[in-house]
Write a protein that binds this DNA or RNA. Structure first.
Length: 561
RNA sequence: UGCCCUGUGGUGUAAUUGGCAACACGUCUGACUCUGGAUCAGAAGUCUCCAGGUUCGAGUCCUGGCAGGGCAGCCA
């Protein structure tokens, strides 16, 4: 028997690693890390990076660390640390006891800085922030040396010590690497290594008033942890020479930084700043709003970790920036839920029907299949009676030419039950259809020998007396534009889909759902995949979130006209 | 107008490292169906950004263009 395991596609990163393995650059070791800054919630773009880093470690029998890049106390918070841990765990990855913080290395990093000063490779600069910017030059013009650049080692040592001891104010001075103010790479124009920030750090408290900059802290943290392959996004490409410079000057273990393109997704935005705006300005209901592209949002929406991991595999990794079709994500979740989700009948917009020739007060228990894709999930009984609810749009008074569900005088099968015929349409004074009177054909009960008469359509239903009330939240894409950030004149919030959430209050679902627990996922047949909301649902109040619709060739047909 | 990176069907990735372009999503047909779902069968769509060059042979190598992205935080 052939293993039908999905073959992991190779990519340029794996090729580099293979090469390193061949040349024994890191003695056969592969050690990665996922290094979030705890200043926001993780989103699907981070999921790509998480899957990449943990996935590679796993495939190469290596390890992947979790390291919080917490070098800026002004922006970071423990709330984010907690959410990040939860999200990674939920995705199914385990960093064992290798949970680190850049702040764990502050002492070591300070020593490294001192070492650089001693080598004459760093100096304390008293230029103001404005002056520094001025001295830096521009991409096309070289910068010029700071007047403080030639301070002696002793002077720098003393000044840096004073910085550490809080003898200067924020902005008075910084520690800079001494590299080359005329470098075509701006990152090499004497970049800042340490700045003064008199803020309380979420872990080190008030121990420090100086904090290392990303470029300094990140590479050295990688080095300290013995990271072999430091994967990051494209915007750090120009930082690699600096990453290498620190490691070389300090003569320490030298990881290989490799850059890849960050994820972009149609119909969504994925920048922390913009996501924060959506949250702060209440366009959505928090970081875990089911419309948010955050991991917590997808979780609450009903996405499975597996579907997100499969998605990450499918999109691959490369260096060119690209935009992934949101449909691929939807495909991933449908593919997963199709195999696993319990089928159930739920009527979202109920229309009452009465089977006039069905005995009053009679109830039948009809057998229904829990998942046609998975026999082991078995069957259940669904109560049937004289009064039922069907979906409003499964009836058309004057049917579209290709509509093959219920219409006056027409027949349709009630799933797992009988074929019925619409005999009479009852309307209120305004002319709204409020009820249908139907007849049923007792010979056509599902499973019985004479049941095989063909009708054009099968619809779902729920017994009026047995139904459970539920609220259903129909979520759709948050943005109505494929590229919400493309318009330079308009803010991306102008493209928020006004119909991204529709709340249905009096839905009727089959009694099977009476024991549904928050987080449970089901398929409402013919409608889509739904999950019980984890925040607003309780025992007397069932709330379902729509994860994704089923593929709908009827809607497609309608669009074509 | 400096430096760095990237250009392969509509979209995302492949191509045994120089051997006549593949997979997935999407789209379209058809079959099947007690979910207009799923499944199955099939189709269309890329002369690999352009122009030269090397070679028996180039998406892969060379040269020159063009296009897109990134970089001037005491953010990461």
């Amino acid at each position: 028997m052939e293993e039908n395991k999905t073959v992991k596609q190779t990519n340029f990163i794996r090729e580099i690693i293979d090469e390193h393995l061949k040349t024994n650059k890191y003695e056969g070791k592969v050690h990665t890390r996922f290094p979030p800054e705890p200043n926001g919630y993780l989103h699907i773009g981070h999921a790509k990076s998480i899957c990449l880093n943990f996935g590679i470690a796993e495939d190469y029998n290596g390890l992947c660390n979790l390291r919080f890049d917490d070098t800026n106390p002004a922006k970071e918070d423990v709330e984010y640390v907690d959410s990040i841990r939860e999200d990674i765990r939920w995705l199914g990855f385990d960093w064992g006891d290798r949970e680190y913080f850049a702040s764990d290395y502050f002492d070591k990093l300070y020593e490294y800085a001192v070492e650089l000063i001693k080598k004459g490779k760093a100096y304390v600069d008293h230029l103001s922030p404005d002056e520094i910017r001025e001295y830096r030059g521009t991409p096309t013009q070289p910068g010029k040396n700071s007047p403080y650049r030639e301070r002696t080692v002793e002077e720098n040592l003393e000044l840096f010590e004073k910085m550490k001891n809080g003898e200067f104010n924020e902005g008075d001075c910084i520690l800079r690497a001494k590299i080359d103010m005329s470098s075509p790479n701006i990152n090499m124009r004497d970049p800042a290594i340490y700045r003064i920030k008199k803020a309380t750090h979420h872990r080190t408290g008030d121990k420090w008033v100086i904090y290392p900059m990303y470029d300094f802290a990140h590479g050295l943290s990688d080095s300290i942890e013995g990271i072999t392959h430091s994967l990051c996004t494209l915007e750090f490409e120009n930082h690699r020479p600096l990453y290498d410079w620190f490691l070389d000057e300090l003569n320490v273990f030298h990881p290989q930084q490799i850059e890849f393109a960050r994820l972009n997704l149609t119909f969504t935005v994925l920048s922390k700043r913009k996501l924060l705006k959506l949250v702060n300005e209440k366009y959505v209901d928090g970081w875990d709003d089911p419309r948010m592209p955050t991991i917590s949002g997808f979780r609450r929406r009903g996405y499975t970790p597996e579907s997100i991991r499969n998605f990450a595999d499918k999109i691959g990794v490369a260096k060119r920036d690209s935009v992934v079709d949101f449909a691929l994500l939807e495909h991933s979740i449908r593919e997963d839920l199709n195999k696993r989700a319990q089928r159930v009948m739920g009527v979202l917009n109920p229309l009452k029907i009465t089977i006039t020739n069905y005995p009053k007060n009679q109830t039948e228990e009809l057998e229904a299949i829990n998942n046609p894709e998975d026999e082991t999930m078995g069957k259940r009984l669904v109560p049937f009676s004289r009064e039922l609810y069907i979906e409003r749009d499964d009836f058309q008074e004057t049917p579209h030419r290709k509509f093959h569900r219920l219409a006056p005088g027409r027949e349709v099968r009630l799933r797992y039950a009988y074929i019925i015929k619409c005999e009479e349409v009852i309307k209120d004074e305004q002319g709204n259809v409020i009820e249908l009177l139907c007849s049923y054909d007792p010979e056509t009960k599902s499973g019985s020998p004479n049941a095989n008469r063909k009708v054009k359509g099968t619809i779902h239903w729920v017994s009026a007396h047995h139904a459970i009330d539920a609220e259903v939240r129909l979520y759709d894409r948050l943005f109505s534009e494929e590229f919400p950030e493309a318009d330079k004149e308009k803010d991306f919030t102008e493209f928020i889909n006004p119909n991204s959430l529709e709340i249905l209050k009096n839905c009727k679902v089959e009694p099977f759902l009476k024991d549904a627990k928050p987080g449970d996922r089901v398929q409402f047949e013919r409608k889509g995949y739904f999950c019980v909301d984890t925040k607003s649902a309780d025992e007397n109040n069932l709330v379902f979130n729509r994860t994704v619709t089923l593929r709908d060739s009827w809607q497609k047909l309608l669009k074509k006209g």
